[in-house]
Amino acid sequence: MPLANTPTSVPVVVDNEKCIADKGCTVCVDVCPLDVLRISDLTNKAYMAYDECWYCLPCQCDCPTAALTVNIPFLLK
């Protein structure tokens, strides 16, 4: 059976003004236990690539510029 893309609202929000991934920072991507964050090829900023979040907060707490906010995923909010 072929695959489809189903939209999902993801809990991690990145403030592109504050994010310094374009200067080489990868802290949030490095620390995530579920490995769901990536740096965008288009914007060079961090974003949540996979909706697989444990809402555990290392990305938010370890971000040097406080650019990340982890929300509670919608299904359990």
Partner: peptide, 15 residues
């Protein structure tokens, strides 16, 4: 499966 249906909404670290 957590009652929320969210695969990663577990008690343990979902990893």
């Amino acid at each position: 499966l957590p009652a929320s249906g969210y695969l990663f909404g577990t008690y343990e670290n979902a990893a």
